[in-house]
Amino acid sequence: MHTFIALFKKETMEFNRTYKFLIVISVFMIFAIMSPLTAKFMPEILSQFLPKEVADSFPAPSALDSWAQFFKNFSQIGLFVVTLLFAGTIIHERSEGTLIILLTKGLRRSTVVLVKTIFSMLVWTVMYWAAFGVTYFYTWYYWKDENVAHLGFAVGNLWLFGLLLIAVILFGNVLFKSIYGNLLLTALFVGVWFIVSIFPKAEDFNLLRLATDGNNILKGLYDADDFNWIYVISIGLIVVLQVLTIRIFNKKSLI
């Protein structure tokens, strides 16, 4: 346990020293604030540059518009930032020789993977839900009388997809010596599910829906039962990827 805590502190210090904490906090908070502000004031801003007839045709902004911006920002740029932040979390230490020093002192490779997994997922979880809280406050402030149904369900799905993406990223960290290889693997993973989305019969198994169906959930088009198999596959895949990451890392040369 002492080793686990010490390694976790090391991850925190490294994340802070390389300004990654500053990056993720800045990006997530900007998106959290901008989501409701964009929904509230963008029609008014556009009306200054468009003909009055066109401007008058815009529907009045609503809380749903605010959350639409939230899902758009975090399912695209937010997850992209997370990918960049953790794409080299193990690769860098392998290339710099840091892990060799730690492992020769008796540190188990499985502990390294577990700590990095927990740390990465914890950063995503804390930052994501903090951003959700900020967006929730501003959305409530501007649209106090509007109640958005199924909100927790929708944002929870995107959070789960973030955990899955991190599991893929860490798996790529032990497969490749280059960050570019890891980024390619992550892009390929997302691309496969984009292809799957083309086929309507595969809808019940398309993991990408966790990140893309937030607005449809808020509109009442889906409920939790529509995601049963997606939850099973996602959680199962996270566990399988974690096991594979440890096993491959145990056999991987660090040189």
Rank of each mutant, 00 (worst) to 15 (best):
M1K: 04
M1D: 14
H2I: 10
F4T: 06
I5C: 01
I5P: 00
L7C: 03
K10R: 13
R17W: 07
K20V: 08
I23S: 15
I25T: 09
M34E: 09
M34G: 15
L37N: 13
L37R: 05
P43E: 08
P43S: 13
E44N: 15
E44K: 15
S47T: 09
F49R: 06
P51Y: 07
E53A: 14
A55R: 09
A55I: 08
A55G: 14
D56M: 12
S57L: 08
P59V: 15
A63M: 15
D65T: 14
W67I: 02
K72T: 12
N73I: 07
S75V: 01
Q76V: 11
L79F: 04
F80H: 05
F80I: 06
F80L: 13
V82Y: 00
L85V: 09
F86K: 01
T89S: 15
S95N: 13
E96Q: 12
G97S: 05
G97P: 02
T98M: 09
L102I: 11
L103G: 02
L103N: 09
L103A: 11
K105S: 06
R109F: 08
S110L: 09
V112T: 03
L114D: 06
K116S: 03
F119W: 14
S120K: 00
M121F: 03
V123F: 05
W124A: 02
Y128C: 01
W129L: 13
A131W: 00
V134F: 13
T139S: 06
Y142F: 14
D145N: 10
E146S: 10
N147C: 08
H150E: 11
H150I: 02
L151I: 09
F153G: 00
V155Q: 01
G156I: 01
L158R: 01
W159G: 00
L160P: 00
F161W: 05
L163K: 01
L165S: 05
I169V: 09
V174S: 07
V174A: 06
F176Y: 06
L183I: 11
L185G: 11
A187Q: 13
L188Y: 07
L188W: 06
V192P: 03
I195M: 09
P200R: 12
F205C: 09
L207E: 02
L208M: 11
L208T: 03
L208W: 05
T212Y: 03
G214H: 05
N215S: 14
N215Y: 10
I217T: 05
I217G: 07
L218R: 01
L218P: 11
L221A: 12
Y222E: 07
I230F: 05
I230Q: 04
Y231T: 10
I233K: 03
S234K: 03
V239G: 08
L244Q: 10
R247V: 14
R247P: 00
N250F: 03
K251H: 11
L254E: 04
I255V: 10
I255Y: 07
